[in-house]
C-alpha cells in the first residue's frame, strides 16, 4: 500500500510539472505580446521596416492558407480514413497504412523541400498560396486519415451488423450510420490538425510565404504572408525596433491555436460524457 502511494505521488508530481510547463509557455508568450495589441495592429500593413503598423496581411494570409489546406485535405483525409477502416483489410490497405504512418514521421522541413521541388518548381506554382496549401495538405493527410480511421473503428461492430441486418448495403452503412456515429471524433481530429497546420513555418517559408507584400493575395497563385512565417522573418532579419511585432504576432498566433484546441477538447469532453 505504501509503495502504491509513493508511485502515485511521483506520477502526480510529474504530471503537474508537465502541466505547469505548458501553461507557463502559453502564458509567457501570450502575455509577453498582448500589450502590443491595438486596432492598428490588426488592421494595418507593417510599415517602416516592420517597426510600425500591423499584421493584417499575415492574418489574412493565414486564414486563406488554412482554409485552402482544409478544403484540400479534409476530403482526401476522410476518404482515405474510410478506405483504411472499411475496405483496408487487405494487401493494398496495409501498404497504404504503412505509407501514411511513415508520412506522419517526416520532419516538416522535408515536406517543405518536397513541396518546393514538386509544387513550386516542377508544377510551376512558384511561391504561392496554392503551393503552400498543397504542401500543408500532404502534412495534414496522415493526421486526418488516421483519426478518421480510428473514429470509424471505434464504432462497435454490432452497429454495423444492425444496419446490415436491415438490408443496408455497405455504402449505406458507412454514410448513414458509421460516419454520423463517428462525426464528432472526426471533427475533433480535423480541429487538432488545423491547429498543427496553422503553426507550421518551415514548409510555408519554402513554398508560399514572402517577407513582405504590399497587397493582399488576389488569387491562389499569389504569394502570401502568414503569422508563423512573419514571426520567423521579423525575429531573424530585423533589428531591435521590430521585435515587438514578433512578440505581438506570437501572442496572437498562440491565442488562435489555444482557442482551436479548447474547442476541440470541449467537443471531446462532451463526447466522453455521453
Amino acid at each position: 500500500m505504501k509503495k502504491d502511494k509513493i508511485i502515485s505521488f511521483i506520477f502526480r508530481i510529474i504530471s503537474y510539472i508537465i502541466f505547469f510547463t505548458i501553461v507557463f509557455i502559453f502564458a509567457f508568450v501570450i502575455f509577453d505580446g498582448i500589450k502590443y495589441f491595438s486596432i492598428d495592429f490588426f488592421t494595418q500593413f507593417p510599415k517602416n521596416m516592420m517597426t510600425e503598423g500591423g499584421i493584417l496581411p499575415a492574418i489574412i494570409g493565414t486564414i486563406y492558407l488554412l482554409t485552402t489546406t482544409l478544403i484540400i485535405s479534409i476530403p482526401f483525409g476522410v476518404l482515405t480514413g474510410i478506405f483504411l477502416s472499411e475496405y483496408g483489410n487487405n494487401k493494398i490497405g496495409r501498404l497504404l497504412d504503412t505509407a501514411i504512418t511513415s508520412l506522419s514521421g517526416v520532419p516538416s522541413i522535408v515536406y517543405g523541400l518536397f513541396g518546393l521541388a514538386l509544387f513550386s518548381i516542377a508544377l510551376r506554382l512558384r511561391t504561392s498560396l496554392f503551393s503552400g496549401a498543397l504542401t500543408l495538405s500532404v502534412m495534414a493527410l496522415p493526421i486526418i486519415s488516421s483519426a478518421t480511421r480510428e473514429a470509424l473503428s471505434s464504432v462497435p461492430d454490432t452497429m454495423r451488423e444492425s444496419a446490415y441486418a436491415l438490408g443496408a448495403k455497405k455504402t449505406e452503412v458507412i454514410y448513414n450510420v458509421l460516419i454520423p456515429a463517428a462525426r464528432t471524433r472526426i471533427i475533433t481530429a480535423i480541429l487538432i490538425g488545423a491547429g498543427r497546420v496553422m503553426g507550421e513555418t518551415a514548409p510555408v517559408l519554402l513554398t508560399a510565404a514572402v517577407f513582405y507584400s504590399t497587397h493582399m493575395p488576389k488569387s491562389i497563385k499569389d504569394p502570401i504572408m502568414t503569422l508563423s512565417t512573419h514571426i520567423y522573418n521579423v525575429a531573424m532579419a530585423y533589428g531591435k525596433d521590430a521585435q515587438w511585432m514578433a512578440k505581438g504576432t506570437s501572442s496572437f498566433l498562440m491565442l488562435l491555436i489555444l482557442i482551436i484546441y479548447l474547442i476541440a477538447f470541449r467537443i471531446r469532453r462532451k463526447l466522453n460524457a455521453k
Binding site: 462497435p156 454490432t158 452497429m159 451488423e161 444492425s162 444496419a163 446490415y164 441486418a165 436491415l166 438490408g167 443496408a168 448495403k169 448513414n176 450510420v177 454520423p180 456515429a181 462525426r183
Partner: peptide
C-alpha cells in the same frame, strides 16, 4: 438479393444498438 432477403428476415441483437439519430 441479400438486401431483399434481410428485409424479409430481420434480426435483433443482444445489445440494443440504436443508430446515431
Amino acid at each position: 438479393d441479400l438486401t431483399i432477403y434481410r428485409k424479409r428476415v430481420g434480426m435483433v441483437f443482444q445489445k440494443p444498438v440504436p443508430f446515431p439519430m
